[in-house]
Design a protein around this nucleic acid. Sequence first.
DNA 1: TTGAAAGCGCTAACAA
DNA 2: TTGTTAGCGCTTTCAA
Lengths: 369, 369
Amino acid sequence: MAEHDAPSLPPTAPPTAPPTPPPTLPPTLADVAEIAGVSRQTVSNAINNPDLLRPDTLARVQQAIEELGYLPNRAARHLRTRTSRLIGLRMPAAAQEYTANAAMDRFVHALVEASREAGYHLLLFSGGPDGPGATAAADLVAGYDDLLRSTAVDAFVVTDTYLGNPQARWLAARRAPFVAFGRPWDDPTATHPWVDVDGAAGVALATEHLLGLGHERIAWIGWAAGSHLGEDRRSGWVRTMTGRGLDVDGLDARVDDTVAGGREAAARLLDTAGPTAYVCASDTLAVGVLHALDERGLRAGRDVGVVGFDDSQVAQVVPPGLTSVRQPLEQVAVELVRVLEALLAREPHDGRGVLLRPTLAVRGSTASR
Amino acid sequence: MAEHDAPSLPPTAPPTAPPTPPPTLPPTLADVAEIAGVSRQTVSNAINNPDLLRPDTLARVQQAIEELGYLPNRAARHLRTRTSRLIGLRMPAAAQEYTANAAMDRFVHALVEASREAGYHLLLFSGGPDGPGATAAADLVAGYDDLLRSTAVDAFVVTDTYLGNPQARWLAARRAPFVAFGRPWDDPTATHPWVDVDGAAGVALATEHLLGLGHERIAWIGWAAGSHLGEDRRSGWVRTMTGRGLDVDGLDARVDDTVAGGREAAARLLDTAGPTAYVCASDTLAVGVLHALDERGLRAGRDVGVVGFDDSQVAQVVPPGLTSVRQPLEQVAVELVRVLEALLAREPHDGRGVLLRPTLAVRGSTASR
DNA sequence: TTGAAAGCGCTAACAA
DNA sequence: TTGTTAGCGCTTTCAA
């Protein structure tokens, strides 16, 4: 293991060599050029424009590169080309409790992978302490501003659009390259590129699934009005129900995104409307519904159908398994990177966003009756 | 919003100026120097060695910096100083199902935050496709190797030590600066710095908590022998039980880290040993125990105590709330960065790792009887 | 206390 | 097809 792909210079430097610092400096373009007997520029071309070289020269250079284990110094390349091949991603405020960040982990994974395939790395940053009073616009964009001014990243992926999205407007005003994960709900004039998941379609999918199982009194438990994201998801339920000629009156609740909120809403609806199934705006709310059913001695899946949203870890392990709308985050990541590449290549942007359809992860909470 | 902290040059360039590309180039040291009427070097000193300047010169330079919104170009600084102020972190293979990655999200958050406070950013990478056959050592270190040779990061945080940790050995052989989150279990000769959480102490804490509630027949559900991590956690249970003169024979199970594994083990133990409480090596297993209790009509917390490990999102929302050992990941992150800074400052390393004590998040599954 | 010169490693522009 | 020159923006060294 120790000798695998070891540094090219021997650990004990020959007496003629100057005393090199312990961690041997990586080889440079000049080193390769010397070994291959060509100029530095030719080595550069061998890497960036191999077509320009005569085959035999190319082969000689490539062998020298191989021999030395050469890789271009990113800082030098960055400085010269003005591209860092780094994509900036701000980590939203740490999830205090289990909330909307349920899918963040999966998304970051997917984005790292998609970026890698495009030759980019992800630079993670945070906007400073998220204490009280730190919500001013200046603080929200602080991290972006620093990275932009220090030319540390080529572009940003902006995720926390649900906050009202001052970042997107600010970045757009700065002409900074970025793609948003999330539609510019509250700014119809926005022209920046974005990728989003069609929440309404996801909820429609969930509702249809329940209809297919024979449910007709399907309730909706969502968030307080005013959240674009929440209203969008709710509309999928309304659309599907009314499309089947089913009434939605009295079958919905608007609560905080907590387990307790879901539990209380479910219990209340059970008393007033007696639904046979619930579709929820989040897994958190759905778990609350499971609680409520449990307390009444009702069995999720057998007695009452329940569907959540986000396909979080919880959905996978909570008994009897929670059916949940799953965002295609891998696909989102690929699209984000694709749009970013087009943006950085200055390709004209048609101003339309990319809307992806979620899928449904079916589990025990909607077992057939 | 649009004019907030706008680029320093007017959008319409004066006729004498060359046509600047749309996204105005950020100001450089030279720009600041000109405005302040000093040399570039003096501006550099104003930033890096302000003590060297006469107060009035310093003030003049600082005002020019402010005026221009100047921030040093990271690529240039990186090239010159050979430090990127970037910490590399490899994202382990995407969590296929809910498994050990339960805490990864929280850890990344914590590390971003700790890094920021030390003036570092996090560079996320992955080691290429994680398909079958991609587990060879060469692939495991591929991502590290590239970043190292291209001098993209100053140091690494290595997390996936449970795999047997070829990375740590490889990085050490390369003399690459890194800190491991996790002890070098299978290599007692390793001398690299590490930070870890005392799993045995965490399980001991859990066991004592149950003893304090009056439990005496406390079972252990852990992983198959051979996992250092698992054996360490198990030892906390053995130590605490025997310390109280309680017998552990027949009270433990070794299974795969799945909900089904935990469920079956719990059921089996219920039949053979009749424990009144379970301590588990993971939240996944603990959820399995909850399933088993549920199936027997037993109530977690009231009838049987259950404790998990990792304080995952699941522990927070699964009814009736799962008591769980919580790793101090924020503290881990701070220590990792502290050790890294010492390492990069070439401070002598005493060869001892940092071992942190977890806490216990108490919830309904260990309600007092 | 400030400035001038040199150079980190690379690539764009041009010349041979 | 290959080589030469210059310079990206910064800091280190040394001189004033």
